Amino acid sequence: MTRRRVVLLLPGQGAQRVRMAAGLHGVQPEFTRWMDEMFTVFGADGDRLRDVWLDPGSAGAVDEAVVAQPLLFAVGHALGRAVRSAAGAPDVLLGHSVGELVAACLADVFAPAELATAMAGHVRRLDDTGRGGMLAVAATAEELSAELRTGAVVAADNGPRQTVLAGSDSVLAAVRGQLERRDITLRTLGSGHAFHSPAMVPAARRFGQDLGRLRPGPPRATIMSTRTARPVSAEEAVDPAFWADQISLPVRYWPALRSLLDSEGLDPGLVLLDASADRSLAVAARGHRAVLRGPSSVHPLLARSDRAGTAADAEAFAAAVAVLHSGT
């Protein structure tokens, strides 16, 4: 019987939560080691990031890009290392937004400390570049044609009827009004910037210059790109612009995940590990026939949002690792 491949799903901006994965700190050795190392790498910002991460009252601060992105990077990377230490390296890495940078580190394209430093410097320099916001909308892009004519753009395709729009604050205010009149469910994502839109092109260029000073190498694991919805090639991996430009381009998360589920989900099946603190990365997969009626399965690595940062994090992680050891 062919073994099911393990896919690690890594979150990006919008999935950050207060005390996300903090229940593993001081409990899971590999997770703790890498989180502490990242806080050191972040230098003068490390202490503040640690304080915000551990503070149960940090709801406002954790949504700031200068906080959310380094923390999402650090937590995602530490979780990936913890999974590798506890049950072996995942076969496929699939990251959403900043999660794709985490995947690049876990696949040894970049040295973790070097990329973390470049990424943290990049978000500090965002300032007013691409100021705006993002809306998660329960509709397809085709159903949002009127809203897209206002200047909003599709920032992410997260699943069937799971579309994220990005734009300036004024544009999104108009879009919100239109959607509410149409009785379409929506949710504001904590971002402060119109990520994955043309407004971020100047920031992408600066980030590309930063990454050009690093030494990327070919991936040592399969990275399913949410920029192209296919595996990252060796040529793409060593191109700094490939990684930098994704912040100004739409995230094709669902096309990438659906491609895996369509090709391997029914035979032999996939084990999907959801590293998001809100368990959002596997929502679309749960409705796919490979999970509904096939041999594929979904396993959260962290507790539900309402129990984030508690002992429930360690319980969820242990349960997922047990599945990997059992092979079921």
Rank of each mutant, 00 (worst) to 15 (best):
G43R: 11
A146H: 15
D274Q: 09
E143I: 06
G121W: 03
V175R: 01
R5A: 08
G212M: 06
S58L: 06
L261Y: 01
R187I: 01
R125E: 15
R17M: 03
R304M: 01
S280K: 05
G132M: 04
L24M: 14
E264D: 10
D91S: 07
A139N: 09
W53L: 03
T188Y: 01
A103T: 15
R293P: 00
V154A: 03
F42R: 07
S259V: 00
V238K: 04
T32P: 06
L249D: 11
E315S: 13
V175I: 14
H299Y: 03
L93P: 06
Q162W: 03
V271R: 06
R205M: 10
Q28T: 09
G133Y: 04
A173E: 13
S225V: 11
L179K: 09
E315Q: 15
D245R: 15
A74M: 06
G159C: 11
Q246T: 13
A320P: 02
D262Q: 07
G133H: 06
R84N: 03
F110V: 08
P231F: 15
G159E: 06
V67R: 00
V271W: 01
F39K: 05
P231R: 14
A308Q: 06
A116R: 12
R3G: 08
V18H: 05
G217I: 03
E264W: 05
A312H: 12
A156G: 09
P29R: 11
V137P: 13
G133M: 07
R213C: 05
A314L: 07
A194D: 02
A221D: 10
P70A: 00
G23N: 10
V18I: 13
R307I: 00
L211M: 08
A59C: 08
S326V: 09
R124P: 01
V41Y: 06
E315R: 13
H193I: 00
P250S: 12
G76R: 02
T328L: 12
P250C: 11
L281D: 03
L281N: 02
T2N: 10
R258M: 00
G60H: 14
L144A: 07
A61C: 07
E64F: 04
A107H: 03
A199C: 04
S197C: 11
G309L: 01
V62S: 09
M20L: 13
A103Y: 15
T140I: 05
L24T: 13
D239I: 03
D210R: 07
V154M: 06
R124N: 07
V171R: 08
G217M: 07
A199G: 05
D55G: 10
L106P: 13
L211F: 04
L261V: 02
A136N: 11
S170C: 08
D313Q: 01
A303G: 01
L148M: 14
L272I: 11
E64G: 02
